[in-house]
Design a protein around this nucleic acid. Sequence first.
DNA 1: ACAGATACTTTGCAATACAAAGTACTAAAA
DNA 2: TTTTAGTACTTTGTATTGCAAAGTATCTGT
Lengths: 109, 109
Amino acid sequence: MESTNENVRSQMRKGVLEYCILCILSKREAYASNIIEELKAANMIVVEGTLYPLLIRQKNQGLLTYRWEESTQGPPRKYYGITEKGRAQLAEMDAAWQEMVESIDTLKR
Amino acid sequence: MESTNENVRSQMRKGVLEYCILCILSKREAYASNIIEELKAANMIVVEGTLYPLLIRQKNQGLLTYRWEESTQGPPRKYYGITEKGRAQLAEMDAAWQEMVESIDTLKR
DNA sequence: ACAGATACTTTGCAATACAAAGTACTAAAA
DNA sequence: TTTTAGTACTTTGTATTGCAAAGTATCTGT
């Protein structure tokens, strides 16, 4: 019976990960490994197979852009940055997140 | 292009709804309409087609039980209540929720 | 009997997170 | 030069979820 614990957290992450990505990229450009590190530092574990498709989705929606940059330590990296549209979406998600936190608060009462 | 607004909220609800149900039922027994009312009062809109399958899932997992009760205003109602296992799961989810709130806080910094 | 209200159920769909396997590029070792 | 290890990115298949919409069942009042 593998950790229902992790399963609970995994389910809760749904729909919030997009928000996390925008939060991170709103502060600075980053490539996938940077993002995974930052998420890990915030206790929000994510694996490559989750992150890459997510970045591509957000890029296709016009929320992100990217540029290639050479690396001295391996293949070139895709550095992602947030667009104006992405910032608008982030504002929307900030509001949605706040509302949800308040909803749970209300229910806990 | 229909309200991306609602879509954002809908995605964020994923995985949190189960938590909400357990919160509500940890305080008192309730049948579906009660639960929907309470969710609506907390600004967390949910429709029947979402709630019923969810209650059935949680019952099958042993987190909930139910009993039929006659009504003076229509067909009998299924009153759901939380089980011991459900309370354990709720505690797990409380922790997971707290962690996620902290994670987002960290990322916002 | 029938109509309307209430309550519960089922079906089909789109979106998500993940594991796992695969592709591509670079630098250092053999 | 060829091979190996490391890094980075991509793709595929699966299970779970939330939802709209349509369907079934029960009760009450006319």
